[in-house]
Every structure is written in C-alpha cells, then in structure tokens.
Simulated assay, not measured.
Amino acid sequence: MANASSSGTAMIRASTAPCRAACSDGPAEVDADTIRQTYEAVLWTGAPGDEQEQLGDLLVGHVQLLLPEVSEYVPRMRGAQQSTALHVITRTRHLLEDGPGASPQEETSRIWNLATQCRALLTLYLHPGPLNERAVGDLDERRS
C-alpha cells in the first residue's frame, strides 16, 4: 500500500490550496489540472475517511467555480451538447442544494456524485462543442 506522501490524495492537499483561496476571494481562473486531480482522487482511488471532508469541500468549490462558466456557454451551445449541459447544470444544482449526507454512507455517495458532476462540468467547460456566435436571447434583444 502506498504511503500518504505518494498517494494521489496527498498531492491534492498541496496543490489545491491556492485554488481554494482564489475561489473564495471572487472570480478565479479555472485550473483544470487541479480540478482533475481532485475528482480523480475520489473516482479512481477513493476518498479515505480522513480526507473525505476536505475532498468534498474542494469539489464543492470546483463545482461552484465551473457552474457559472458552463452556464455562460449554454445559450450558444447546439443540440445534444446544449441538452447535456442543461442536464448536468440542473443535476449539479440539486446536489448542492441537498447539502451534506445524513449518514457517512450518504456523504460518501454525495462526494462521489460531486466528483462525477465536477468531471462533467470540466469536460463541458473545456469542450463546449461548436458555439453559435450569439445566443438566441441576444438576437431577440437586437430586434426590439
């Protein structure tokens, strides 16, 4: 078994502190590598009990950073990509509204779901697909 200094989650501890501080001070730049490391620590290696709360907090921060970014793209997205983005945004908002799990098992499930949603949001942010030049709402405003 790997020791803590060589585990993926130990890497998270050192590399995510700047993102967390930036996220709480206002708009922050999306750090895809840090976000990816955080969700991979949960999805691929599991979140050990002592790191579960910290990883959950980091995922909430990443999701809160990505939601408005992806939401900005949605009016300009096309077809299935737009539908997928709307589904991911809606599901993520519900997950955030539900808050922490009532039991350790529910919290583990919530953190897993946050990691999955975070991965989906990052993918949509990095690969929004072909975008229309203007959103439909923008065109309507110009016609009035």
Rank of each mutant, 00 (worst) to 15 (best):
A85M: 10
A115K: 01
L43S: 08
C118W: 01
G99W: 02
L58R: 04
L43M: 10
S103L: 09
V88F: 02
T16P: 00
R36K: 13
S6L: 15
T34E: 08
A85T: 04
Q117H: 09
T45N: 12
G61M: 14
Q117V: 04
P104H: 08
T45K: 09
Q52L: 13
S6T: 11
R91V: 09
S24G: 09
V60G: 01
D25V: 05
T116E: 04
G26S: 14
H87M: 04
R36F: 09
L58V: 03
S5W: 04
P75Y: 06
C23H: 08
T16H: 05
E40M: 12
R119V: 00
M1E: 07
Q81T: 14
H62V: 00
V60S: 05
M11S: 13
A47C: 14
G79H: 12
A41Y: 00
A28G: 07
T84F: 03
R76S: 11
G46Y: 11
L58F: 05
A17Y: 12
M77P: 02
G99K: 11
V30Q: 07
L86Q: 06
G26C: 15
E72Q: 06
A41M: 08
E97C: 14
Q37K: 08
T108K: 13
A28E: 13
M77L: 10
G79A: 07
V60R: 07
N3A: 15
Q54A: 13
A22Y: 09
Q82N: 07
V74N: 02
A85V: 08
W112C: 03
V30H: 12
A41D: 01
A2M: 13
L95G: 05
L95E: 08
Y39F: 14
T45F: 13
G46K: 09
L43A: 14
G61T: 14
H87K: 14
S7Y: 11
I111V: 15
V60D: 06
E72H: 03
D57A: 11
S6Q: 09
M1N: 06
R110D: 01
T38G: 08
V30S: 03
L86I: 11
Q117I: 02
G79Q: 04
P18Y: 04
I111C: 01
S83R: 09
A2W: 13
S103G: 05
E72R: 12
G46N: 14
E69K: 12
I35V: 15
T34L: 13
N3L: 14
S83N: 10
C118R: 02
L58Q: 04
A10N: 13
E106Y: 06
C23A: 07
A85S: 05
V42Y: 01
V30Y: 08
V63G: 00
T34N: 11
L95I: 12
E107K: 04
R110P: 04
D33G: 05
L67D: 01
S103A: 10
A41S: 10
E106F: 03
L55G: 02
T45D: 11
G101K: 10
W44N: 03
M11T: 06
R13D: 02
G26M: 13
T38K: 01
L86A: 02
I111T: 12
G56C: 15
L43R: 14
D33R: 10
H87S: 09
A32C: 03
A115G: 02
M77V: 04
Q52I: 03
D98P: 01
G26V: 10
M77K: 07
M1I: 07
T45H: 11
T116N: 13
T16C: 05
N113C: 01
A32G: 11
